[in-house]
Structures are given as C-alpha cells and as structure tokens.
Design a protein around this nucleic acid. Sequence first.
DNA 1: ATTTTGACTAATTTTTTCAATTATTCAAAT
DNA 2: ATTTGAATAATTGAAAAAATTAGTCAAAAT
Lengths: 204, 204
Amino acid sequence: MINADKKRTQILEAATRRFAHFGLAKTTMSEIAQDLSFSKALLYYYFPDKNALYAAVLEHVIAQSFEEMEKQLSSISDCQQAMMFMLDKRIAFVTKYYNLLENSISAVQQIPDEMACVLADSKDKEIALIRDILQKGVDTGQLVIEDVQETAEIILFALVGMRFSILKDLKGVLFPTKDEFDHILQLQKKMVTVFLKGLASPSH
Amino acid sequence: MINADKKRTQILEAATRRFAHFGLAKTTMSEIAQDLSFSKALLYYYFPDKNALYAAVLEHVIAQSFEEMEKQLSSISDCQQAMMFMLDKRIAFVTKYYNLLENSISAVQQIPDEMACVLADSKDKEIALIRDILQKGVDTGQLVIEDVQETAEIILFALVGMRFSILKDLKGVLFPTKDEFDHILQLQKKMVTVFLKGLASPSH
DNA sequence: ATTTTGACTAATTTTTTCAATTATTCAAAT
DNA sequence: ATTTGAATAATTGAAAAAATTAGTCAAAAT
C-alpha cells in the first residue's frame, strides 16, 4: 500500500525529469522505465497510458507551484508588491518547465482532452489568483475596479500574450535563454505597474 | 512603361484577391494567371518568384492600411480617442486579411526572409504609430511617460499577444468569426483604457 | 491478493518511393 | 520591351514498407 504509493511517486518523478527535459514526443515509456530499472509494464499498472502520465506530471508541477505561491502571497498585503511577486514566480515556473509546456504553448496542434483539462484548470486558478490580488486591493481601498473577474482575465491574456509575442519574435530560437525570459519579466512588470496605476483609487 | 506598371498592378490585385481568400499554400500561380487571362510566365516577368509576389501583396495591403490610418489619425488630438480609433482599424485589418496573415500569425513554421522582412517593417511602423500617439499625449500634457518607445512596444506586445491568446483558446476554430474579433477588440480597448489611465498626468 | 515482469500485439511514427502537381526557366514570337 | 508555349526543376501528396513505440496479458514473484 504505502509501498505502492511510493512506486507511483517514483514513476511520477522520473517522468517529470524526462518530460521536463525532452517533452512529450521525445520521451518514451521505455526510457522512463529504464531510468527506474522497472519494467515498462509496471508504468501501465500505475498509469492508464502515456497521456495520463504526462497529465499527472503537469498537474503535479502546477499544483506544487500554486501551493507555494498562495502560501507566500498570503503574507503580502500591498497589491503592487503581490503582483510583482506573482510575475517573478510565473516566469520562474515557465523558465523551469518550458519544455514540459511546449505542447500547450505552441498552439496549432490538438491537445488531448486530459491535458487540455489540466491546462484549463490551471488557467482558471491563475485568473482566480490575480482576481484575489485585485480584490484585496479593492477591499483595502487601493484600487477601484468595476468587474474584478474580467480585469483579472484581461491581465492574464495580456501577460500570456506578451510572453508569446516576445518569444515568437525570437524566431529560430528553439530554447529561449534565461536572459530572454528576464526580458519578458521586465516588460510584464512595467505593463502591470502602469495597469495597476490605471486602476488606482484617486484618493491614494 | 505606363502599360507595364498597369500589368504589374493587375497582377498584384489578382494575387491579393486569391491570397487574401485562400492563403499562400492554397493559391497557385496558374490560378492567378488564369484569373487575368495572362500566361503564367508573365507573372515571372514582373515578380521573381511566388514568395516575392506574396510579399508584395502583403507589403501593399499593409502600406495601404497605414496610409489611411495615419491620414485619419492626424485629425484626432485626444490620445484616448486616437488609441481607440487605432484599435478599431487594427482589428478591421486583421479581420479582413486574416487568411493572408495566417502564416505570420501561426508561429512555429519558418517564414521566408522576404516576408519576415515585410512583417518586421510593419511591426516597426506600428510601434512608431503608437509612439506618435503617446508622444502627442505627452506633448499636450495628458500623459507622463518616461520611455515612450518602450511603452509603445509594451502596448503592441500586449495587443498582439492578447489577440493570440484569445484565438488560441478557441481551439479547433479554423476561421474566427466577426464576433470573436469583436470580443478581442472589446478586451483590447478595456486594457488600453486602463493602461492610458495609468499613464495619465496627475493634473488631468 | 497484489505487484511485477517478459513476451506479445496494436498503433504510431518514420522512411522511402513514386506519381502528380506546381514553380520556374527560356527560346522564340509579338 | 513584352508576352507566350513548351520544357524542366522542384515540391508536394499518397501509398507502401520498415522501425519504433504504446499498450496488453498470462504467468511469475512477492
């Protein structure tokens, strides 16, 4: 029982390493099994198929990141500060898991339902996170916002889109460098700062 | 001479119709020639190759749109109004020429140098357009901006990215509808409005 | 009973080949 | 200088073959 869970976790971790480095297509179930000296069949004992394993990995790293972020965010009361913190963490996450996310990032191709679901969830949670930051700003009188949900959506669209636009401009670059992610972060911070100023209560 | 230019223009126009409707891949040189009852070889007398013709079409429609926009923009002094006008025109352009731009829009694939060049130019011009609107706002005392060029870039990145993010969410949709473009426009306007408010001079 | 495996099959991807389409050239005609 | 028909070169698409990988299962191990 406890041992079974351990095996499952081991598989998840090995899969995370492989997927995070090589992506879905360039990782085989055999390789993951070999990394652990397990038989390939064992992977199928714990996970129904490759997509499910990949989705589990995705879900795991996303959940981990959210958990950490929410914990740390709770101790920041200023919403400008909170937003900057979130941007830092967001970029750190994307930088670390860029290859894992490549499928979800590069549009075009169809994403299997299982992953689409995880990603949709993740998007909702991210909007909720931004919404909570904004709401705190409204509650403390720092901000004046008519529709907090929509405003959070606009901010997320702009952030995701900004990252995409900048990375697209770097055409021919298979793997963006740390510097390029830093550049994105810098512009995102400036944008959000101006945006928050635009939402600021006149009395402040 | 004058007749030769006319032929060139005819070819450009016929190519525009085909490319705008079917895109680069689904349009053949023979079809363009047939539309005009010219021989296919004549197209090669006026344009070195298919990519060059496509790039010329792209350049032409972009230049036309810019020209019209600049003319009309010159008579708008309020920068909020100017920005909204620009957003309207931008979306109208993308809606009209969506198929023509599909290559440039869908990332991933390599864009031939000739087109990349036209698109890079177009991007620079667009930034310049936004910069000029912002600069007017600074000059009239409506806005306070430290780095106008960078701010213009941020706005463009956010706009382009926003469009991309929203269209990506509509996965499986080959041709976005008018309504979907309107939704993009609506969110873009809200974003830019808040952003401009964030740049507004305190005295206003 | 649960967990694990090797050997097997099914599905998918990659490679190769070949026919058909399409881009491009060019010598000759206008 | 402009235009064309006829030819060649390049590209694409479909089909077949080969190779890799996903997924299954009966039996072994714990």
